Simulated scan of single mutants.
Amino acid sequence: MKQMRAFDGPTASSAGAGTEDADGSRLVGSDRVLAVLKELARYPDGVKLEELTRVIGSPKPTVHRALGALRRAGFADQDAHGRYVLGDEFLRMAFAHHEARPEHVRIRPVLEALAHRFGEAVHYAVLDGREVVYRAKVDPPTGAVRLTSTVGGRNPAHATGVGKLLLAHHLDGLEAVEAWIGATPLVRRTPRTLCTAEDLDRDLQATRDRGYAVDDQENEDGVNCVALAVYATSPGAPSGAVSISALAYRTPLRVLVEAVGEIRDLLGPLAGPHR
């Protein structure tokens, strides 16, 4: 199966980034154990102790002790080739927690219905600072090309439909947008990415006026989407947003926009009080 390049822009820490905490001090005790656990997640095929030691930036015996603590808890394991991997107990807990989240239980059937109807990838995402985090994803049932976005993946909020939909509920006016951007420039993902406060503010205002957001190849060339708010936990504020992310040549943006009413109908009560 042909794969598009990863569009969820992983923001995993780079090599050595786990050696210090937020204030620059060396990791010690439980902090180091958690750093080892987090680093293990970056190696689905496993990682040798020597490589893990280099990446974590701690002495080999110290990393080995951290791995021992994780193995005793079932959070890490060692395969027949001596590579360390995340343990089955950790995976069981993570998946059980994810599947049991109230919002996930309610949203999953809707995502499946949307993916079946449009034959494109459907996501549920929440806002986390300057980024969105994908909480759920359903791939289309058919199609030779699929997006490589993943649950837990992140993207810049200003470059995505789900992000702009949620920002429209948080940033009302140019001053609020400017304060949110602050001194850190907005990253330009494609030539169409909105990177100025003025452009983003206009787009957020349009999103509020029409009740949905669009991503016109602003996060990835060749991929567009339409996003709508989801009210899974409260009728007063969206818990997140649902987007249909489509390959532009297969499902043009105008097709998604024309189907917004149908999307709202499929969302049902999750579309909120103003549907």
Rank of each mutant, 00 (worst) to 15 (best):
85 V>Q: 12
239 S>M: 01
83 R>G: 06
257 V>N: 09
159 A>P: 07
126 V>R: 08
244 I>T: 11
124 Y>F: 14
31 D>K: 13
198 E>H: 12
31 D>S: 14
239 S>Y: 02
18 G>M: 06
227 A>T: 02
230 V>N: 04
138 V>Q: 11
247 L>Q: 13
144 A>V: 12
187 V>A: 05
138 V>W: 03
245 S>T: 06
91 L>I: 11
80 A>G: 13
182 G>T: 07
182 G>M: 09
52 L>C: 10
128 D>L: 09
78 Q>P: 03
233 T>E: 09
86 L>V: 15
184 T>M: 00
172 D>A: 10
81 H>K: 06
223 V>E: 04
250 R>M: 09
132 V>F: 08
34 L>G: 08
253 L>N: 03
57 G>S: 04
114 L>V: 12
103 E>N: 10
83 R>H: 14
90 F>T: 02
188 R>N: 01
54 R>A: 15
143 G>P: 01
137 K>Y: 13
65 R>N: 14
270 L>W: 01
105 V>F: 02
75 F>D: 12
246 A>L: 09
14 S>H: 11
136 A>T: 05
104 H>A: 09
77 D>M: 11
189 R>N: 00
269 P>D: 08
83 R>Q: 12
187 V>W: 01
15 A>H: 12
20 E>Y: 13
201 D>Q: 02
171 L>V: 12
263 I>P: 02
153 G>T: 14
268 G>M: 13
149 S>R: 04
181 I>G: 12
230 V>W: 03
188 R>W: 01
219 N>P: 05
244 I>W: 07
41 A>V: 15
263 I>L: 07
173 G>M: 05
245 S>C: 06
16 G>P: 02
64 H>G: 08
110 V>R: 10
256 L>T: 00
79 D>H: 10
147 L>A: 10
133 V>P: 12
39 E>P: 01
265 D>M: 02
172 D>G: 05
270 L>N: 02
176 A>R: 08
94 A>M: 09
133 V>W: 12
94 A>E: 10
161 G>P: 02
214 V>L: 15
201 D>R: 00
215 D>L: 00
215 D>F: 00
58 S>M: 07
141 P>D: 10
1 M>L: 10
102 P>S: 04
59 P>C: 05
31 D>P: 04
173 G>K: 05
229 A>M: 07
57 G>P: 03
139 D>N: 15
156 P>Y: 13
95 F>K: 09
258 E>R: 14
218 E>F: 07
78 Q>A: 08
105 V>I: 11
66 A>L: 04
79 D>N: 15
225 C>T: 01
13 S>P: 08
240 G>S: 07
51 E>A: 11
